[in-house]
Every structure is written in C-alpha cells, then in structure tokens.
Simulated assay, not measured.
Amino acid sequence: MKIAVVAADGRVAKKVIAEALQRGHEVVAFGRHDINETPAKTYIKKDILALTKEDLQGFDAVVDAFGAWTPEALPGHSTTTAHLADILSGTNVRLLIVGGAGSLYVDPDHTTQLVDTPDFPDAFKPLATAMGKALAELRLRKDVKWTYISPAADFQADGERTGKYILAGEEFKLNSKNESIISYADYAIAMVDEIEKGQHIKQRISVVRA
C-alpha cells in the first residue's frame, strides 16, 4: 500500500513509518523539518495546513500524527484535522488519526469521558479537551473515510514492542493486569493493522497492551 504520514517528525509518526516499511509498504513522510529524520526514504517538507488535494492523491491512507501541547497551539488539533478532512473529502483515501485517551468513555451510557474523572491529571486536561473537540468535529464528517485511534492512558514513548495489543472501542479498557498502557511501538502495529484491514471506517477505536 501507499501511505502518507503527515506531521512525520514526531516520535509516534516515526514508529508508524518504521512499522509500515517493515511490512513492505511505500511511505511518504510530510514534515516541517529541513532534514529527513524519519525512516521514510521519501520526505517532503510541508506543513499540514499547506497540503493540497494533489499532494495526497494516489495514497491508500493518510496518517495524521499531529501533536501540539502549548496553549496557543492546542486549537491546531481541530484546524489540522479539518483541513485534512477537507482535502480528502469525497475520495477513497483513508484518514487515520493518532488520537488521545482523554475522550474515551468510562461508562456504558457514554456520558462521562476519562478527562472528566477526578483522577485525570490537571496538566493534561487542556490537551485532552482539544483532542476531544477535534474528534467530536470529525464525527460530523460523512464525506471522509476516517478512523480515530486512541492509545491507552499511559502512552509510553520508549516502551517495549511486545507485538500484542487488545483492540477496544469507545470505552476506556484495562488489560488483565488492570493497566491502561501501550508503547508507541505497539500502537504503531495497531495503526498499520488498521490501515491494512480497513475495518473501522468512520469509527473511533482504542488499543491497550495485551
């Protein structure tokens, strides 16, 4: 398959690129750095908001790995997702979003999200709120083949690649050890599995270490 990874300079993006390449897929990385620091052989320096429909033609899937943490940059989660949805509107190109855990529901009625629970760290609430807003806006799009993939609450950059994960849905899930944890490497496996299988169009899914 031919896969585009945008905001490719981040650590999650690099893991996704490496996983896809290992499986024999063709990957083009789009990033803002002057030098290609990703595993991809083809790197194009271009900001997400500068991407055009023509840039993403011919791809089977686009992975949006955008991340922002400073208060002034947090609205970028909505604007970048909306821009990618706009330029992929009406096409067969899939849009897969590297999401957050804060918007996962903790009740079967889906009225309370993880971000709203008492133990959710205050420091991460602005980020979780911004990412949750982007997801809510994405849900309104009927013209895009999107999939939003939430990691476990403890999303570990340097965690081991176990090769195993539990695929879940909208609700916050713990594994058999009562943990909500996954490494970037195992998350990347789940992302590329989803790209290959394409089973969750216009859905949010989540993953946790098995």
Rank of each mutant, 00 (worst) to 15 (best):
M1N: 14
A4K: 09
A7Q: 03
A7M: 09
G10C: 03
G10Y: 08
R11K: 15
K14Q: 15
V16M: 11
I17C: 01
E19P: 10
L21M: 14
E26R: 13
V28Y: 10
G31Q: 08
E37M: 04
A40S: 07
I48N: 06
I48S: 00
L49Y: 01
L49D: 03
T52M: 01
G58Y: 12
F59K: 12
A61C: 13
V63I: 15
A68Q: 08
E72V: 01
P75S: 00
G76M: 02
H77P: 11
D86G: 06
R94C: 06
G99Q: 09
A101E: 11
G102A: 15
V106H: 00
Q113F: 05
V115W: 03
D116P: 00
D119E: 13
F120W: 14
A123N: 10
F124D: 14
K125S: 06
L127C: 02
L127V: 14
M131S: 05
G132W: 12
K133E: 11
L135K: 01
T147D: 03
Y148A: 03
I149H: 02
A153C: 01
F155H: 09
G159S: 10
E171M: 11
L174V: 05
Y184L: 08
Y184V: 13
Y187V: 06
I195F: 05
K197F: 07
Q203W: 02
Q203N: 07
I205P: 08
V208P: 00
R209A: 15
